[in-house]
Every structure is written in structure tokens, then in C-alpha cells.
Design a protein around this nucleic acid. Structure first.
Lengths: 241, 241
DNA sequence: TAGATTGTTAATCGATTAACAATC
DNA sequence: TAGATTGTTAATCGATTAACAATC
């Protein structure tokens, strides 16, 4: 199975988002050009990214919306559900447990774990919260190989170690800890600090460069600057998460 | 004020994390080499990144830990607090309202907003939740220029528009919506779908390439693969988020 | 001093964009 | 058909890594 470039993988869900929109609007065909306009990704980039999904379009016409959605979902393995455990049922963990979008993205949380006796035994979104001590045992018995880590940073490595010892293959890490795992274990970080760093600095740069004019920045209608696509002309947004 | 490259900004908080560790351990000096080892970032990369903070180290000795922490925090503008509003006080919003790490990162949430009458009037972590209708008015009156968006994707663009109309400068977007904003408005996305896409695909690639051997992957001790730094040899993790 | 480490210039690498032939 | 769009090869761009002189 071919390794798809990191940045391509990150863009695919964006295409999926606008494609869902098109589907809802009843469109059957769409061009890479149109997807490019709505996501702010360069037209050529979109074509190249879509090529990784093995879909073939028809010149002058474009791609079939339904086929394209299916192809992207297949590429991301979002068609069938992977079982996973969530550790850390605080506010963030609860938010994730309650998030209906996960199942659309191939993730089914089978059980949650926490070391707070108040939480153990309760249920969030039909998912039971177990004591943390049971994590290792259940992981190996149930052959779960994806873990969602929503514990405080100070406890993250510890929980991570238990996961690794019990055969976990991938960890979706929401803590700020830089996890130390053996080679081959996949770690994907939701790095809020990194994101905030970019935001903070960009704000500071702008305020300083505008000479303290902290009111309206100079703007041009409908042009967007962000880290997804630098300059973007978009017309719509959409759905959940 | 110089524009620091995106990927450098994302790495700076990682350096900060290991530096805090060093400080707690009582170390006064640290080399870029050591930081590189613990974060998995290439040694030369670390040196280059640190150069953006304008710190100067001393050959053979390295950098002063306290000075380096201060320099990075200054670079990210994490020293003084920026006021901001949070919109969407569901589980995710509540998790963010309760997160103490924000103030260390230059963010103070002054008020929250939601359209659920059940939530309006309540308080989370001493932050009052106001009705959504008051957002525009308060934004412009209080000269707040950072907004945290934790509403469902379907409502995100709408709220975003209100923010923009009332002079917002930057939006920290936790929804899956691709926000359409005028040029000059900074959007920083916490893109869970993008992250999950990478995780899902990498897992699928590994399972397929191992020929269905979904038990233990081949591993080498203490070597780490993730998107922060490809190959990382690390010894510790740390703190919160 | 000798050697580790800094700061920076040059080389490499990977990802993005431009260009264009193929085609429905 | 003519022209929009695809798929792909070549050129460009930016970020990473290698190399090395300066130095405490």
C-alpha cells in the first residue's frame, strides 16, 4: 500500500467537505478547478492529490461527485470502522466521546478509561467509563490498536507506555506531551500549543506592522489568508466537528 | 516585525516544553544538540529556529535556559495576555474554558457565548456565558480581537461573519468548517479531520504492508516515528494541555 | 590549548506550481 | 469541432540538512 504524502492526507478531508456540499446540492459532476476554488488549494495540487485516490476523471467534464467521495473515503480507510479506546474522560475526552463525526471518519470508540472514581461506571454517549487499571488487560484481550489520549500532559507518557506494552499501533494524542514510543508506533498529535503559537505570532506581527492600529485591518472582500491555503476565494463552508 | 516561518512557529512550543523540564531539573545551560535529541527535531533545524528568537548562545557552552524560555515566549507574544471571546460552550468549549494552560500562552478568555438558554447565565472557570446575540455588541465595545470558535460546523460561518463585522483580527477555529474571511483576518484551524486522516491512512498502510499481521509491529526500542519529527530519540515528555 | 558548540552559507530534498499534450 | 479539463512532466519554490569557519 502506497504511502501518501502527509500534506495530501491533510487536504483530503477538506475536499470531502466541499464534495458533501455538492452532493447535497444535487450536483453529479465536479471539476478539480471548482474544488480548488472552494478550498483555496491550488488547482494543480487538487489534481495531484486526487490522483492518489486512483480516481480517473473525464476531460471537459470532471469527476463524478459520488465516486470521488467514495474514493477519498476509501483512501483514508473511513469506510469501515476501527475500534479504539479513549483514555481521559475529562471535558475534552467527553467532547470527543460525544462527537458523532467520528463514526463517519472510521473511528468507533468501544470504551473509555479514567482514574477518577467519580467518572468510573458512568456512561457518555453509550460508552462506558472503566477504571484506568483495566486498560492494559482490555487492550490486549480485545485487540484494539488505536488509542485516543486525552489525559493531562503529566500523565500522558505513563498511559502511552501501557498502551504500547499492550500492542497499540497508533495513538491520537491530544495532550501536550511529546510522546516517546518505539519505532513503528504511529503518533498523531493534535497540537493546540503549536496552533496557538502561530496565531499569537501572526496577531503580534500584524498589530506591530500596522503601527498600533488595532482596529480594522486593511481588507479586500472575500479573500482569505490562513495556513490551509494562503490565499483563498471561497463561497461556502459547512458541516460538523 | 519579521514574519517567522509557519513550521518554525509550530516547533517553538516544543522547545519550550523541554526547556521547562530543564528548568525544573535545575539546569542553567542547554545546547541545541540536547534540545534536538529530546524533541526529535534536527540539530541544525533547532539552531536555525532559535536564531529567529534573536538569542545568542555561547560556543562550547550553549544557551541559558531561562533566557531561552523568555526569548521564545517573547517571540510568540506569550508574555502578555491577549483578551479573547469564546463562542460555543458545549463540551469542547467547556474543556477550553477550563484549561489553565491558556494563560501561560498569552490567552485570557474574557467571556463565552452560546445560544443554548440552559447555558446562558452559567459560569465555567469564572467565565460567564452570554447569549449569542450579545457577541457583536460586546466584541466592538471591548475591542477584543481574538475569537475562539467552538460551535458546530454548520453554524461556524455565521458566527465567523459576526466576528468579522465587529473587527475581529484572528479566529482560532475548532470547527470543521472552512471559514471564508476577508483578507487580513487570521484563521488558525485545529483540524481534527486532517489529523484523523493521517492516522487512519498510516494505520491502514501498516496493516496492509504487514500482511494482516495486526499484532505487534516490528519495533526498535526508543525510536519514534511521528509527524513532528520523523525519527526521534526521546527520553522524557511533560506538563499539561 | 583542543574540542564542543554556535551561527551561517551551500547543497539537498520534497512539495508546489507551471506548462502542455491528450481527450471527451 | 473548439475548448475545457484531465493527467503528467518539467520548473520553481521553500524548507531541511550538510558542511564549515568562528569562538569561548
Amino acid at each position: 500500500m502506497e504511502a501518501i504524502p502527509l500534506l495530501t492526507l491533510r487536504r483530503l478531508p477538506q475536499y470531502l467537505e466541499v464534495l458533501q456540499q455538492f452532493k447535497e446540492e444535487g450536483l453529479t459532476m465536479v471539476s478539480a478547478t471548482r474544488i480548488a476554488e472552494l478550498t483555496g488549494v491550488h488547482m494543480t495540487q487538487v489534481r495531484r492529490d486526487l490522483a492518489y485516490t486512483k480516481v480517473v476523471g473525464t476531460p471537459k467534464v470532471g469527476h463524478n461527485v459520488r465516486d470521488l467521495i467514495r474514493a477519498i473515503e476509501q483512501t483514508l480507510n473511513w469506510n469501515d470502522l476501527s475500534s479504539c479506546f479513549l483514555v481521559g474522560a475529562g471535558h475534552l475526552g467527553t467532547a470527543i466521546l460525544g462527537y458523532s463525526g467520528l463514526e463517519k471518519r472510521g473511528i468507533r470508540i468501544l470504551a473509555a478509561f479514567d482514574n477518577d472514581p467519580e467518572l468510573v461506571g458512568t456512561t457518555v454517549n453509550k460508552i462506558k467509563i472503566h477504571p484506568l487499571e483495566k486498560l492494559g488487560n482490555l487492550l490486549s484481550r480485545m485487540h484494539v490498536h488505536i488509542g485516543i489520549l486525552t489525559v493531562p500532559g503529566a500523565e500522558a507518557q505513563q498511559v502511552c507506555d501501557v498502551m504500547v506494552q499492550n500492542g497499540i499501533l497508533a495513538i491520537w494524542n491530544f495532550s501536550s506531551a511529546i510522546l516517546n514510543v518505539p519505532e513503528g508506533v504511529i503518533v498523531e498529535n493534535i497540537d493546540m500549543s503549536a496552533s496557538l503559537a502561530v496565531l499569537s505570532r501572526r496577531v503580534a506581527e500584524r498589530l506591530e506592522n500596522n503601527g498600533g492600529n488595532n482596529g480594522e485591518p486593511k481588507t479586500i472582500k472575500n479573500k482569505k489568508i490562513n495556513d490551509r491555503g494562503k490565499n483563498e476565494y471561497t463561497e461556502l463552508s459547512s458541516t460538523q466537528l
